[in-house]
Nucleic acid binder design. Structure first.
Lengths: 248, 248
DNA sequence: ATCGTCCAAATCATCTGATGAATTATATTG
DNA sequence: CAATATAATTCATCAGATGATTTGGACGAT
């Protein structure tokens, strides 16, 4: 199975049936057992670590991690975006379709606690928007979406959805926004959650699709941004007429 | 952007704006320029190579590859399957939804040559099935599906779809089958392609969904298989009554 | 001139050994 | 008993030497 990867290290894990939490022998021992130098072993170790397959610390050694699709997707995605920003839209499109496709199943698995949590996120978000100056409820936005899909038993779907938000943040999209847009988005969120709680999943789905179109429209409209490497702008909301005339 | 990855090597590529085909300096030079040892550099190089971001050969050196989502997905997926076969169904579900979601767009981009190619695949497939003994048209199966999505300008979607087939083969699912099932599948394929050519994308979509259900049913029915590492069975079709009574 | 063969140079590939840093376990001391 | 100091384990990084591969060029034969 893993012959493809040519990784003696991963082959060792698989063939020994090591489970998450299990420890591997020290590198020196592994080197002797697998008949390859520590240097080569460390090359493979770096791959396994980058992919989130093992956790490695001095003294503690090398530990097998639970499977997670996210690191592989994120690594590839962030590199892709660094090379070509336009690819964000391509990934975004994939993510939207995946959200749509798994929405019904995901919602059907939500617990009462999940719903209560969703409601609290909405409250917090509106609270942030109503501050002076308003703050962007980005953490709540990410959390809301991921919470809806939390109970899905599909690591691949979850990995893709999580990677989207990491890319979103890496692109700096969580930083700039305008009040009207944010308010509208969160009104949709409120509607989605209310429909979910009311058991009207179809209505929730309808609102999800509409709210996604809102985002798509906005992303097409946004000017190509040019941020150099060290440039970390502080979060900021561009105020507009609506916010200024109704500040309270 | 790539600060996350902590890879000086990839940071070098990005910051120097290297494009696919461009060469990196030799490791010794890079080591001096980036102020890290060759050993550490090689650890990062192994990651970049595993992810398909660079191609590296003696004398030729290190070359930047065009972006490809497949290696990252495949690597993570194959490791996941080696740990837990049941995850194949999870990925399969994702792949099916992705195929559905992008079907209309993909079909709308197909050229006349693509359609002709699809028709030839179907001919070849039925020819293989009609041989004595029949052969499994697995290559045609893979090619048919991927061809439909070939014109999509979304590397992430394509990476996921391609990874599915690599996993399919790694799982050995391309090896065993029965004649009736294969014949039914290819009858669906024929219907899909004919509908596409006739311009009836909705009908094609309907058939695609139905044909996918066929596969799902079969995968649920299949007994958990136990194949050890070196076990490579030759392709084989289990003949059944239909095939035996109508061998010609 | 064109082709093929052989040789040399460039570059990656791998190993070994030495030293440093981080973390955890253990011992010590007030 | 708690806080601190010490030690042991393991990873982290580096440097250097040697081998393997691939490529490009020299050179001769046809």
């Amino acid at each position: 199975m893993l012959r493809n990867t040519e990784s003696d290290l991963l082959a060792y894990i698989v063939e020994h049936g090591l489970q998450p939490g299990d420890r591997l022998p020290p590198l020196e021992e592994l080197s002797a057992e697998l008949q390859i130098s520590i240097g080569k072993l460390r090359e493979q170790l770096e791959v396994a670590r980058t992919m989130g397959m093992v956790e490695v610390k001095p003294r503690t050694g090398i530990r097998v991690s639970p499977f997670n699709f996210l690191p592989a997707v994120r690594f590839s995605l962030l590199y892709a975006l660094a090379q070509d920003r336009k690819l964000f839209d391509a990934f975004s499109e994939l993510r939207n379709h995946v959200e749509f496709a798994f929405f019904h199943e995901a919602v059907s698995l939500l617990t009462d606690e999940d719903c209560a949590y969703l409601k609290s996120l909405i409250e917090n978000a509106f609270a942030k928007l109503d501050e002076h100056p308003p703050r962007i409820p980005h953490a709540e936005h990410r959390e809301l979406h991921l919470t809806i899909y939390r109970r899905l038993d599909n690591p691949f779907v979850k990995g893709l959805l999580e990677a989207y938000w990491d890319a979103y943040e890496a692109e700096g999209l969580s930083v700039f926004s305008d009040y009207d847009y944010l308010h509208e988005v969160w009104t949709y969120h409120e509607g989605i959650v209310n429909a979910v709680i009311a058991g009207d999943v179809d209505e929730a789905y309808r609102l999800l699709v509409q709210h996604t179109k809102l985002l798509q429209k906005r992303q097409k409209a946004r000017a190509p941004r040019n941020r150099t490497n060290g440039d970390r702008a502080a979060p900021e909301i561009k105020l507009n007429a609506h916010q200024r005339t109704a500040p309270k």
